[in-house]
Amino acid sequence: MQKNYFLSLLCFALCSSTLFAANLVPIPTQIKVDEKKVALGKKLFADPILSKDKTFSCMTCHNLQTNGADTVAFTKGVTGEQGLFNVPTVYNAVYNFRQFWDGHVKNLQEQAIEPITNPVEMANSLGTVLEDLKRSKTYSALFEALYEDGITKDNLAEVLAEFEKTLITPNSSFDKYLRGDMKALNEHEIEGYRLFKTMGCISCHNGVNIGGNLYNKFGIYQNAKSEELGRYNITHREEDKYVFKVPSLRNVALTAPYMHDGRAKTLEAAVNIMTQYQLGHPMDKEDLHRIVDFLNTLTGELPEIVKDMRVEGQ
């Protein structure tokens, strides 16, 4: 009995060290970018020229004025068809280890073009986009100033990605707290932070983006009944069924509805789902609210650059 106890304590110590070793890091306040490319990318981001009928721009689905995403579970594209996934936020996307819910692209550049050609999104063709851009004197000039080869798919992706890199939201209360400002969080929020760790949320939502750096199965302890198969479509491994990218919790207060299919309309609902499906254990209402309080502190400041950007059309 003694021996048992002692050894189990040892194991416990071992494991807790792992748990508490996982940490959250504040996002940097600045990020290095090529200004000229950013300017061009910004212009394009808000320009419906990219879409088939010239009504949709990136801003349309990723509203930078609000949350860098949408406010509905599934957004309709140019053709009126609904998208398959809840629009993830562009903000801090640069810190995600993969893009898209199933992580099938590695970086912002690879992601930028897909919405343009996705039939349920901008429903355009790459050829048309490039042609339209080339026809525009402004864009021709701007591109030629930056690139020897002018307007190409890679260059277009690059300028969009460069712009998106600037879309970071530092200085959330929590980041300030992490940086040493003990007053940045109140009691509840601090308690929420503690629970976030002890409950085990932190085991998946960690790192600089508080998430966005690994995959996990959606519905471990309960069948989440997801329509999408996630990573299975890529790896075709049984264990990858319903495996998605763990999303970032930054600005989570702004990006309702939650989950890849937008099934959770509120933070409480989302946390609930998490504890049941992912953590597989109960949570007090009090604890839940504390955690939600904590989650609310993850909202950062919108960058200057988006102040003058408007959604066009529609």
Partner: peptide, 8 residues
């Protein structure tokens, strides 16, 4: 890691 902690 998360599970083992919970088990404890």
């Amino acid at each position: 890691t998360s599970t083992v902690y919970y088990l404890y």
